[in-house]
Amino acid sequence: MTTHITSGSAVLEARGFCKSLGGKRILNDVSLRVNKGEMKVLIGPSGAGKSTFLQCINYLIPPDEGVLFLNGTPVAPSVKRELYALRERVGMIFQDFNLFDHLTVQENVSIALVKVKGMNRGAAALRAMEELERVGLSRRASVYPAQLSGGQKQRVAIARALAMDPEVILLDEPTSALDPELVGEVSAVIRELARGGMTMILATHQMEFARALATEILFMDRGEIIERGAPAELLASGGNTRTRAFFCKLAAEEGAC
């Protein structure tokens, strides 16, 4: 039996991910490696495969091919226990928040601590309050998701993922479903996480994130990574990269150029 060990100190490495849906190739040999404290930013047009790739990383969508390594050890997602353990260690934030409608804000954050991590309810509630404090929502702990704004919902979703103490967080366009005036509060929380050294993989259309926080930008199109590099390299003014052209096109659509 061959044991695959990745080199260096990668917290997570996805190697050679392929996925087809309905006969269409969605991901074609996509690989990514993220070290502790890094933030990798996936950029690309809608339908490029960014969301599919993120969901393949924690096997919400099982890839057809590819191997995932966590701290150098390959994950065998066919073993249920390993799959659940992987998901505990790799948090996920969705575009549509996906809070549990029947639970209060605090219960949304604490339920996985009780049911997945096996914490007692009291300790889980305290931990949930700590995370809600971190995202500035401890005063809203007893309300239900329907009573929150979009930005607040996303901050609760971030607190829910953080409470599990993940090694990596996957963020799937966390600000795309928000009204423009609500983007700032979520962006601020993500910036704070990046400053605190959280390892993250973020799919976004926001150039400011990519420019300010990314360790590396990966430009995806039609299921493949077309370009990758440091923000300074890909977004340099006067540069002739797909990434820069993409952002300029987005800015033009928003009337900023």
Partner: peptide, 18 residues
Amino acid sequence: IRQGQIKAACALGFSAVD
């Protein structure tokens, strides 16, 4: 029930039964 909530529960490490 919205599929997104089911995905979120899976992403948190819930077993199918839980």
